[in-house]
Design a protein around this nucleic acid. Structure first.
Lengths: 214, 214
DNA sequence: AAATTATTGTATCGTTCACTACGTAATGTA
DNA sequence: TACATTACGTAGTGAACGATACAATAATTT
């Protein structure tokens, strides 16, 4: 996990005009993430968010805009802290089989982290949102699409580097890996244990074609 | 799909006391299912349900109890109409590999049905429900658990009938198939095409161990 | 015919929702 | 010191939510 990195405006500008903010914006954002993570976007009320963040509604709206923007900023923070390193590692690992294996092992750990063992907020956070917040659902759908693209790119490289057969159906396998990853979030929110998701991660390896014979 | 089978009280009792119901209870239930299916439990408001069902709130509550009971009855109807046959076929097919293959092919079709190509209402319908409706989430979680059990039972039979290696890790593979199935619902609600889910279904076969050599 | 029972449509009920108006407090700037 | 600017806490806003009270209506039962 990466340390929290507040927006530049929070530390670079020595002093702002007007009354200074009385709460830690980054800490409040993390508290909000905790609420969104465990309850999802719609059931997380402004009142509950404010209670967790230790502030009142006007402070929330002043610092984060509105509920949708707060949610998206919390999700962005979540991705950077919990997933960026894992996705990067998949690209750094030279062997595609090891890369995918390691990714799913780490995913099982993230999805069942003691902090919030309830799946991925990108996958589950904006399911069943009211129509007025459709933009939130669209934004998270776009984030999920990025995950699929990363799988495709990594498998394509595996083929290019002769670690996968030339006739590998890239999209099909990438889609399946992506589908499995999203299913793991539902399992986690249903209370699946770390060991249970580890089993699934182990099985994910079977989706990869055997290394190309020389 | 099976034809709609109304509760016995609707057809066996020739006449009930009091003013007779002025609408078709089964047809109204199917309309409600359509709304719940596309929007999920929480975003489907009583007002919208009533509009789709062609009735007023008092009729809804008189016939179905409350929103939670209406939803659970609609889900039960959904399962019977869309999934019972598919699960049964998995048990009827003698070969476990063919059984799993056929199941996932049919699942891809159901999840992208033109009627509501938005995934499985058992998987997605009760995600992110407010705490006051926790019982609804619990009920659907139990239904999902049944799916996992059916996979386990089918694979266990496959081992007993010597179609799978004796050392097959039943639970791990069944969990993974179940996880993949649930991920397919998210893909479908994200707009995945039938062809895309067919690819995933095809890849699911790779999760099964090769038939035991004699 | 009178009584009983259940369903109907209208018009709400109280609660919770996301969000904000407003006056006050705390800073930098002139 | 006066002013501009921003954040604060209190106390609400209108709207939407799930669920109902009520009187009228239509059926069976006595």
């Amino acid at each position: 996990m990466q340390p929290f990195d507040p927006p530049a405006a929070d530390r670079l500008v020595p002093r702002a005009k007007g009354r200074p903010r009385a709460f830690d914006r980054g800490a409040a954002l993390e508290k909000a993430l905790g609420v969104f993570w465990q309850k999802g976007f719609a059931p997380a009320s402004i009142a509950e968010l404010c209670a967790a963040m230790g502030i009142n509604p006007p402070s929330l709206y002043g610092a984060f805009g509105n509920k949708a923007q707060l949610f998206l900023e919390a999700v962005d923070h979540y991705e950077r802290v919990f997933w960026d390193e894992t996705w990067d590692a998949m690209d750094i690992e030279p062997d595609v089989h090891l890369a995918i294996t390691a990714f799913f092992a780490e995913a099982a750990a993230i999805l069942t982290t003691p902090e919030a063992p309830c799946g991925c907020v990108v996958v589950l956070g904006a399911i069943n949102v009211p129509a007025e917040f459709q933009s939130v659902a669209d934004a998270l759908k776009a984030l999920r699409e990025e995950g699929r693209s990363l799988f495709i790119a990594r498998l394509r490289r595996g083929v290019a580097e002769r670690q996968l057969p030339a006739d590998t159906n890239l999209e099909a396998i990438a889609n399946t890996l992506h589908t499995l990853l999203q299913g793991m979030s539902i399992e986690a929110s249903d209370g699946a244990s770390r060991a249970q998701l580890d089993q699934v991660a182990e099985c994910a390896r079977a989706l990869m074609p055997a290394p190309q014979s020389r």
